[in-house]
Design a protein around this nucleic acid. Structure first.
Length: 463
RNA sequence: GCCCCCAUCGUCUAGCGGUCUAGGACGUCGCCCUCUCACGGCGAAAACAGGGGUUCGAGUCCCCUUGGGGGCACCA
């Protein structure tokens, strides 16, 4: 059997890290089984769906390298088909018209709340004869769900989850304006798209029981379910804007590599023994549903940084230079690219993100003669200032910018002045009070090359 | 309120009844390497939420408590 998975985000916001992980798992599963991975945009909420969000989702997936198969399905465009299924269910007696007004239902729920009873539709129109129908009111169509027995979702992650059918109510399939509800649309689309495995967030677990009512009523085959635990922010609270629920594009802007992102996301909720660094090809080979964890995971930027650093060190100088070049904005050029590649061996060892890499490579674009502005000057100790002046003269004359020759120049300078190389950095650090890390030789160069950068650092350093 | 899910170091996790005086990774702290930082190497501190069972034996199985999370719309 051909495995078909799908990722079905609703374009009401940007693709966040939780959604990205869901997409990754679906993608991995289909690739492992040489199956199909499809993308469906659930845009039936016309109020909240935006073209910008659709764009962001597509770009995010592309950046992550999660390529989908076949055409993208836009759920809204399939509304007629969804309505057709609702009517078919109606004709088969598996659904019925309900004329209760929203106000009436709200009152019903209010009473249930007050009485401490479970909140659900009470089936008031379930068995009413057609003669009761109100000609001047547009009805909704509700599923006629079984009221006894139980529905068991055989979930690949959560195990068998049982729901008493008495807690499942007759939910709405088709609204009074003739548009389908989410519950109907998903089921119909998954069926029509041939989806065999539904891998999605935990928040849909209880929905699965409802959706099964439709599937059973239509006599369609049951898909295999795998409900992933939701992700939490760094503080353990619900994922929100403050807690790392950044759009995936923001991770790109932060300087993370797609490969690292995939590795990090994979390990968040899935494991393969003690393995940590799992390149994508290996992940495809190993991925399965059995090893998905059942408890929610928190995002951890420190770990992401570490994984990213690993992939950066592993990347070729050329590839890294190309990935970093765009960060130089207008200054990017083939000349700069060559310099970047030359300096890369020394640069990539100490950067955790592309942004850090670009930052420490700023000296490459410094216009000479180098200058340090007054504000920064004032913060420097006399000793450091003198050293800086002498250093400047050396590096102003430097013509080649590859790491070895810079290193040689610095060494030469140190020897000529009777200093240890490390000593060049030390006074600078002393000058920049409060800076916890001592600047390396490249940092010194960066400072020399960027007066504004020094000013910025001193802003942070001064009380 | 009702239904459902979850619970091992700070974090991600290994563990699928004995081999667990609980392993790995990130982070933290030492030491080493070294011209600084970083990388790398070595080492340390750090966890089975609590209580009952079942069993010769429980981190591993069952129940309860507690604590998190999700769902209960003419949203998706």
């Amino acid at each position: 059997m051909k495995i078909v998975t799908r990722f079905a985000p609703s374009p009401t916001g940007y693709l966040h890290i939780g959604g990205a992980r869901t997409a990754l798992f679906n993608w991995l599963y289909s690739r492992h089984h040489k199956g199909v991975f499809r993308l469906r945009i659930e845009d039936t909420d016309r109020q909240r769906s935006t073209p910008a969000a659709i764009e962001a989702i597509i770009e995010g997936l592309q950046w992550l390298g999660l390529n989908w198969d076949d055409e993208i399905v836009y759920q809204f465009s399939r509304a007629e088909r969804h309505a057709e299924v609702a009517k078919q269910l109606l004709a088969q007696g598996r659904a019925y018209h309900c004329y209760a007004s929203p106000e009436e239902l709200e009152q019903m729920r209010e009473e249930q709340r007050a009485a401490g009873k479970p909140i659900r539709y009470d089936g008031r129109w379930r068995d009413r004869p057609a003669s009761d129908h109100r000609p001047n009111v547009a009805p909704v169509i509700r599923i006629k769900a079984p009221q006894t027995g139980e529905t068991i979702i055989r979930d690949q992650v959560q195990g068998d989850v049982r729901f008493g059918n008495d807690v499942l109510d007759d939910f709405i399939l088709l609204r009074s304006d003739g548009t389908p509800t989410y519950m109907l649309s998903v089921v119909v689309d998954d069926h029509d798209m041939g989806v065999t495995h539904i891998i999605r967030g935990d928040d849909h677990l209880t929905n699965a029981a409802r959706q099964r009512q439709i599937i059973d009523a239509m006599g369609w085959p049951e898909p295999v379910y795998a409900h992933l635990p939701l992700m939490h922010g760094e503080d353990g609270q619900k994922l929100s804007k403050r807690h790392g629920a950044l759009g995936i594009h923001e991770y790109k802007d932060l300087g993370y590599l797609p490969e690292a992102m995939r590795n990090y996301l994979l390990r968040l909720g899935w494991s393969h023994g003690d393995d940590e660094i799992i390149p994508t090809a290996q992940a495809i080979e190993w991925f399965n549903l059995e090893n998905i964890g059942r408890s929610p995971a928190r995002v951890d930027f420190k770990k992401l940084d570490n994984v990213n650093g690993h992939y950066m060190r592993q990347a070729s100088d050329e590839a890294l230079a190309d990935a970093t070049l765009p960060l130089f904005k207008g200054q990017a050029s083939t000349d700069l690219r060559a310099k970047l590649i030359a300096a890369m061996p020394g640069l990539k060892e100490r950067a955790k993100t592309l942004v850090e890499l670009a930052d420490s490579a700023q000296f490459l674009t410094a216009t000479r003669p180098l200058k340090v502005d007054d504000k920064a000057q004032k913060l420097l100790t006399t000793e450091a200032r003198a050293l800086l002046a002498r250093l400047k003269s050396v590096f102003e004359q430097a013509t080649t910018w590859d790491a070895p020759s810079l290193d040689a120049a610095a060494r030469h300078f140190a020897e000529a002045n009777g200093l240890k190389l490390g000593a060049i950095a030390q006074p600078l650090r002393a000058a920049l009070t409060g800076r916890s890390t001592s600047p390396g030789i490249f940092d010194v160069l960066a400072v020399l090359g960027r007066a504004e950068s020094l000013a910025r650092i001193s802003d942070q350093a001064s009380p």
